[in-house]
Design a protein around this nucleic acid. Structure first.
Length: 742
DNA sequence: CGACTTACTGTTTTT
DNA sequence: CAGTAAGTCG
């Protein structure tokens, strides 16, 4: 404190702009910080936390700081520690789920759990539901377990328990039996002493509303709350925050409605849009000065996002130069696009550009493959973000062994590994175990222990089970005596799991063995097996460190919060991006979310931005032609260059192709001209408008014009592809949209 | 019981 | 196309 009096401006306030400074020094009452992309959000968040502590407005242990990702939590922890020292350790800082888990462990018995409950992930959840559906006779073909799991999770996101589900709302999902399924799923979880991600918050809501003393205790302890990425909060998280805030209302939420891209996962943009009316006397601070991107890039982003209706509205500006214009390239097909982008990156390498400052951002995970193949073939170093380490089957198997050792009642772990590696135990033997378990109301492992002393089982199965439980007993015994990394090695070895992969001839077997080694290494960072298991349940991010000299390849979703000097945004085609499925499912609302995704993508770039599309692309093995994304037309012309040199499709061809196609649509009764189209686009999207891509306007022998190849005669028509004999360029296969009748 | 074959079905996924 | 999931045969 004395240090602060001596120095007029403490380091965390130094160099803040007016808006940032206002956000940092407004310590009491509800505060909404609307922070556009690249406006120094993390800086504000950490500085404000430091300010709270330094001014003694709150003790570190009176502050709750919530993030969504472990990465954000970690970063904040480090930066706050730099500002205020070891006191940072005392702050309640973590993800929603980690903090809720911490609280729930303390009060688990209030909802019928034990404090050492297991946290299930989506995969466990699906497997559990499958079992319950089989018992309930719900057709898994008509109603996939994954989908029903999604339905239940969305309810949990909204803070709804099974009893609270409106039967009308459940509708005919699973023949009107979802609510019942939700209920039995919940019962099963309690019996397993397990929770899923949604439960972490939902159980806390139950506890807070039913046990006022518990809530009062937290309210007394926590005087100030800060929330990062508020636009991504769901209803349950909102309620949780509201209850904890109490009537103190010292709640500071930081977020950007324009970057809300998780609506499909239950996030409620409404939370941020409603903040001012939700919390009376709320103050709103807008951070609008962007420190990341050049003028052209920022202008492109602003223009695109301005088309959204539902937004609070911000105007980003920058003191930086305009920089390079945004490049928009058109390509023949996906391979062409990948080839061109790869060689552009390759040439950057020659200019000593650090490839870790280059990213290719795609709409969906499968789109990375085309680039990977190309990168491999030209030897360009890259890394794909998203292949989740802890979701790989070998890792999950290994963890299941450890889970079963620490949690004998973990039936899901038991089922996962009972016959992995093969122990000759099939459906018949397992059915007997299940029957015994149900009859005696014991976990599967305990049921096996009962059965091996009887003659219920075939001798072979009896033998296999018997040796399995002996292994488990022995390992559990060892668990207390040896370091958990040694235990893991021992278990993998003695179970025959390692050997199983060593004997496996498939090409990915060596990689899996490597992953297992990596898993054991990762365990060293934890002081107990328990701690490690908690970590993998909640901290699903593997090694995200950006190595020097590697191009980053990832989805737009995964890129949120990151920045790169150079960004490539390929695949900007109708149906791909914006995704047809989102539009079909969520109409205009979905389209706005897609547009926010475009905004997120554009604003990842610091200096160079390349947006591209291909006129035909193979999707699910089927060639499909596409028109450029509507988002391309939303880019301000004065800030972009339609690059003639890069692609086979020139800028002229691009506009020609677009207008040809839109005219085709117009003749189908969708209104003339693309400007009017733009006005109708949302509506059309909702109605499932699809561009007419067939070559129906053409016939064999037609005289046609192509921008690049000139005049020619159509030789044959294959769907949307035309084979044309050009006067000068010879025989070529082209896409119908790129030619016109003269 | 397990290896093999055939049919189906495809986003995004902070925890 | 490619990965999975269920179905069939030895």
């Amino acid at each position: 404190m004395t240090e602060i009096l001596e120095k007029p401006v403490p380091i965390w306030l130094d160099g803040l702009n007016a808006a940032q400074s206002e956000a940092v020094t407004t310590l009491d009452g509800p505060l909404l910080v609307l922070s556009g992309a690249g406006t120094g959000k993390t800086r504000v968040l950490t500085s404000r936390l430091a300010e709270l502590v330094a001014t003694n407005t709150a003790k570190p242990w009176n502050i709750l700081a919530v993030t969504f990702t472990n990465k954000a939590a970690r970063e904040m922890k480090v930066r706050v520690a730099q500002l205020v020292g070891p006191m940072a350790e005392q702050v309640w800082l973590g993800t929603f789920h980690a903090l809720a888990a911490r609280m729930l462990r303390r009060h688990a018995e209030l909802v019928g759990l034990k404090s050492d409950f297991t946290i299930l992930d989506a995969d466990d959840q699906t497997r559990l539901l499958k079992q319950l559906m089989a018992a309930d006779d719900i057709d898994p073909k008509r109603w996939p377990a994954r989908m029903l799991g999604g339905v239940i999770s969305r309810w949990k996101d909204r803070g709804l328990c099974a009893e609270q589900i409106d039967l009308a709302e459940a509708g005919d999902i699973a023949n009107g039996r979802v609510r019942q399924l939700y209920q039995s799923y919940q019962n099963r979880l309690i019996a397993l002493n397990a929770v899923d991600f949604g439960d972490l918050l939902l159980h806390m809501l139950t506890i807070f509303t039913k046990h006022h003393d518990v809530l009062a205790d937290y309210q007394a302890r926590i005087t100030h709350i800060m929330v990062d990425e508020y636009q991504d909060t769901n209803v349950a998280q909102y309620l949780w925050l509201r209850l904890l805030t109490g009537n103190r209302n010292n709640l500071c939420c930081v977020g950007d409605d324009d970057q809300s891209i998780y609506g499909w996962r239950g996030a409620e943009v409404g939370n941020i849009l409603r903040f001012e009316s939700d919390f009376s006397g709320a103050k709103t601070v807008r951070l609008e000065e962007n420190y990341r991107s050049t003028g052209h890039i920022l202008a492109a982003a602003s223009n695109v996002i301005s088309r959204n209706e539902t937004r609070l509205g911000k105007t980003l500006y920058t003191a930086a130069d305009n920089g390079e214009k945004v490049r928009v390239n058109g390509y023949w097909d996906g391979a062409d696009e990948a080839r061109s982008i790869s060689s552009q990156i390759e040439s950057m390498l020659a200019d000593q550009v650090d490839l870790s400052q280059v990213a290719v951002l795609v709409r969906a995970g499968f789109q990375t493959r085309e680039f990977e193949e190309r990168f491999i073939s030209i030897g360009l170093p890259y890394r794909v973000v998203g292949a989740k380490f802890y979701e790989r089957s070998e890792i999950r198997d290994a963890i299941a062994y450890l889970r079963l050792i620490t949690q004998p009642a973990d039936d899901l772990a038991f089922e996962r590994i009972i016959n992995v590696p093969k122990r000759g135990l099939g459906t018949a033997s397992l059915q007997a175990v299940h029957m015994q378990a149900r009859a005696s109301a014991k976990p599967l492992l305990a049921a096996v222990m009962d059965l091996v002393d009887t003659d219920e089982l075939r001798p072979a199965a009896r033998q296999a089970f018997s040796s399995f439980i002996n292994d488990i007993r022995r390992w559990r015994d060892q668990a207390g005596k040896m370091h958990h990394t040694d235990l893991a090695r021992l278990v993998l070895d003695e179970s025959g799991y390692t050997q199983m992969w060593q004997l496996d001839k498939s090409p990915d077997a060596p990689g899996r063995l490597e992953n297992l080694t990596e898993l054991v290494n990762a365990m060293q960072d934890f002081d107990s097996l328990q701690g490690f298991l908690e970590h993998i349940a909640l901290v699903m991010d593997g090694d995200t460190e950006n190595q020097q000299g590697e191009v980053t390849l990832m989805t737009l979703h995964a890129a949120k919060g990151l920045e790169f000097d150079t960004v490539f945004l390929p695949g900007w085609e109708e149906g791909v991006f914006p995704s047809q499925r989102t539009i079909d499912e969520s109409g205009a609302v979905g389209l706005e979310e897609e547009r926010r995704l475009a905004y997120v993508g554009i604003t990842r770039a610091r200096k160079n931005l390349f947006i591209s599309f291909a006129s035909s692309r193979r999707i699910h093995g089927q060639w499909q032609s596409a028109i450029p994304s509507r988002f391309i037309q939303e880019l301000p012309p004065e800030h972009i260059i339609e690059d003639l040199a890069q692609g086979m499709a020139s800028g002229l061809e691009f506009s020609r192709a677009t207008s040809v196609r839109l005219d085709v649509a117009a003749t189908n009764g969708y209104g003339p001209g693309w400007r009017r189209m733009a006005a109708r686009r949302e509506e059309n999207a909702v109605n499932g408008w699809k561009p007419d891509n067939n070559a129906t306007d053409f016939a064999n022998g037609d005289r046609v014009f192509h921008q690049k190849f000139g005049m020619g005669n159509i030789r044959s028509i294959d769907g949307d592809k035309l084979e044309i004999a050009f006067d000068k360029a010879g025989h070529k296969k082209v896409v119908a949209g790129f030619v016109s009748k003269p």
